[in-house]
């Protein structure tokens, strides 16, 4: 799907302490040192989102009444962190969920509304909080059961991006909406294997739709496959779709942390904010400085809940692709 006339005005990325220590820490707008920003994990995530929203509004020198649409998403049940963060802003609000692919789903929704002149600008806001996600999806936070090497670690942070129809240095040019994929993967501790088919399908469809090759891009970034999922995707894409990913491919989950130093993250980062942190900081800066010309973002999300998992259903996955280009 081609998109014209949609530009990125500015971005804000706020990371947690471990993400800040990672190799891309210096690109983030801000970071927090303490996981407990408020009384509970969930309220801390709300606060993180509010920080990212307010910082962005200050940065672009706008007030909430200037914003036409707020599209938010997170991992908590009924995406409550987003709703509570949107409370009292009085910006028209859409809550969306695609698990870890939420950030590109937001970009697609917001940019198609701007492209069709329904609205002038929009803010996309996403977050995740490691402790809140652990509590909801896995075991209690302090429970110390050993994890397999393929497990990923939910990133902490919040990221916001403002899209507008006014011309800026970075442009959204095309996007592809993902399909739900199921290759009968059932291990919640190996999300890379669950989500790689979705990334493969979306990359293939995006390239085919736009008559492009993988080498046309300076950078292709998947969301949170982790170090093992990355290899699975490369091999599967080559075998199934005859697409070869070379040095221009990387995975945000594998990039976000210093995997040698921070052992607790095992295979890499995950969560909706994992890809957003890298995309809205390092990638956005790179596009602004013309270090990259054309970048394809393909965050992947696992669509599941512990209930369905316990009922022995396979874990579904989805990936949405958005292409960013630097404006010459």
């Amino acid at each position: 799907m081609k998109i014209n006339n949609v530009y990125i005005k500015d971005t804000v990325t706020i990371s947690g302490p471990l993400e800040y220590q990672g190799p891309y820490g210096k690109y983030f707008t801000d970071h927090i040192n303490d996981y407990y920003l408020d009384k509970s994990y969930e309220l801390s995530e709300v606060k993180l989102q509010k920080m990212a929203l307010n910082k962005l509004l200050n940065k672009v020198e706008k007030t909430t009444s200037d914003i036409d649409l707020l599209v938010s998403g997170d991992l908590l049940n009924q995406i409550t962190a987003s709703s509570y963060a949107a409370n009292k802003t009085l910006i028209p609000f859409l809550g969306v969920y695609s698990a870890c692919a939420t950030s590109t789903e937001q970009l697609i929704i917001a940019s198609s509304l701007i492209d069709s002149n329904k609205i002038k600008n929009a803010i996309c806001l996403t977050s995740s909080h490691n402790l809140a996600a652990e509590k909801q999806f896995r075991n209690p936070v302090e429970y110390g059961s050993p994890k397999p090497k393929t497990a990923t670690f939910t990133a902490t942070g919040s990221a916001s991006i403002m899209l507008t129809n006014e011309k800026t240095k970075v442009k959204i040019t095309s996007c592809t909406i993902g399909t739900v994929q199921d290759l009968n993967q059932k291990d919640p501790n190996n999300m890379g294997a669950v989500m790689a088919p979705a990334a493969a399908d979306t990359i293939y469809r995006h390239l085919k739709e736009n008559n492009e090759k993988a080498s046309d891009y300076d950078l292709i970034l998947t969301g949170d496959l982790g170090i093992y999922g990355k290899d699975i995707l490369k091999e599967y894409l080559k075998q199934r779709y005859s697409i070869e990913l070379k040095d221009n491919y990387d995975d945000c989950g594998a990039m976000l942390y210093d995997l040698k130093k921070t052992k607790e993250v095992t295979a890499g980062g995950s969560g909706p904010v994992c890809s957003a942190l890298i995309n809205y900081s390092y990638v956005y800066e790179g596009l602004k400085n013309k270090k990259f010309k054309k970048v394809l973002l393909v965050p992947t999300g696992a669509l599941f809940s512990p209930t369905f998992s316990y009922q022995k259903q396979s874990i579904l996955s989805i990936a949405h692709a958005v292409c960013l280009e630097s404006e010459s």
């Binding site: 090497k149 290759l183 009968n184 993967q185 190996n190 294997a193 093992y228 091999e235 599967y236 075998q239």
Partner: peptide
Amino acid sequence: QQNYETIVNKHKP
């Protein structure tokens, strides 16, 4: 599915 499973198992640490 079977084909994919072999790829996954190959890359399992």
